[in-house]
């Protein structure tokens, strides 16, 4: 709740982020050279038209994915759910697809609005489905969310094949940054703005994580905060899907990592979450460009591999983290010892 000086972890992360950003700007098929960018107009053009936008896109997408993952986990009271794989991402793709089919000449902002509204609907439906499920059994909602995302994804595939838009699947369902150019990533600034919005309600989101009753008892307008958070994370998800495609795992792994590092007081945790998300996606994008240089792997693939490994390390490293991830020992003790005479 208090403002503190940034922790050592945060500062080291920031330093690493700068190094990666410089690397990211430096890596590409054409060798820019440090000095070339000052004298050579072609090099300068590549820098501003391609490399900087691509780097910014990775940073914005990564931060947004991680922050919206953390918000979603509070809303559904479950640490294993993140918007990109739990319906919001697939719904956003469905929204874009429907707009493309119905109004082929639609401007990008129409697609953007369609994707946002679809993501919002997808998230709200998921929340309604998960609401009656008890928080003490975290795996069931997580599975339901995965299946839910899978079903929407199947609908997207079906419609895409029917509408002869199969190439759509490749570009929108697999996130990659190779298409990012100046003028084609700016929607991600909206995702950045929505992430900042979630930081502004960080305290109230933390109170919400104590339970709706506890939050209401402290004077939080639970409906308003829930609505703001779900709108925010839907917009973030939609902007990412529309501009670079779906990127899984970041929203799942990063909030669990920051919970380990600083805990869940979002005023403190969200900046670190955003930073780690940006680091993860930017790092993955650099790897994607280097592994088969000069060819690229989609960043979604690299992120999925890194994310899966990180997640396994995270839940196996410390036995208590399994408790934090849901199977709370104190909570189960509560149920056992209901009565005492």
């Amino acid at each position: 709740m208090t403002f503190r000086t940034p922790s050592r972890i945060f500062l080291s992360g920031l330093a690493l982020l700068m190094i990666l950003s410089v690397l990211s700007i430096g890596i590409g098929v054409s060798d820019l050279g440090i000095w070339g960018t000052f004298s050579d107009p072609d090099a300068r053009q590549i820098l501003w038209e391609v490399r900087v936008p691509r780097t910014l896109a990775a940073l914005l997408a990564g931060a947004g994915l991680a922050v919206s993952g953390q918000a979603m986990q509070i809303l559904v009271r479950n640490r294993f759910i993140e918007p990109m794989s739990a319906g919001a991402g697939q719904s956003a793709a469905l929204g874009v697809l429907l707009v493309t089919l119905l109004v082929p000449s639609a401007a990008i902002w129409v697609k953007m609005v369609g994707a946002s509204l679809a993501a919002l609907t997808g998230s709200l439906v998921l929340m309604a489905i998960l609401r009656p499920m008890p928080p003490t059994q975290p795996l069931l909602p997580a599975l339901v969310a995965l299946v839910y995302g899978g079903v929407i994804s199947a609908v997207v595939s079906f419609i895409a094949f029917q509408g002869d838009l199969a190439q759509f699947l490749g570009s929108w369902l697999t996130g990659e940054f190779s298409g990012v150019l100046r003028g084609r990533y700016e929607l991600l600034w909206i995702a950045g703005g929505a992430s900042v919005l979630m930081y502004l309600i960080a305290d109230r989101l933390t109170l919400l994580s104590l339970g709706e009753d506890a939050a209401r008892a402290l004077g939080v307008n639970v409906g308003l905060i829930t609505a703001t958070a779900v709108a925010g994370l839907s917009v973030v998800t939609a902007m990412i899907v529309v501009s670079v495609g779906s990127i899984p795992f970041v929203g799942l792994v990063v909030p669990n990592l920051t919970a380990r590092l600083t805990g869940d007081n979002l005023r403190r945790a969200l900046p670190l979450t955003a930073l780690c998300g940006a680091l993860m996606v930017l790092g993955a994008d650099i790897l994607s460009r280097l592994i088969r240089f000069p060819y690229e792997i989609p960043v979604a693939t690299t992120v999925a591999v890194i994310g899966a490994v990180l997640f396994l390390v995270l839940i196996n490293r410390d036995p208590r983290s399994r408790g934090a991830a849901g199977v709370n020992p104190a909570a189960s003790a509560d149920r056992k010892g209901g009565s005492h005479v």
Binding site: M1, R79, L207, L210, G211, L218, G219, A331, R335
Partner: peptide, 22 residues
């Protein structure tokens, strides 16, 4: 409340200080 299934990892001092929120 009767039972608080709080899954958030909050420090004890942070939890108490949220009581000042109103």
């Amino acid at each position: 409340a009767q039972s608080s299934h709080v899954q958030a990892r909050l420090r004890l001092s942070e939890l108490v200080s949220f009581g000042r929120y109103p």
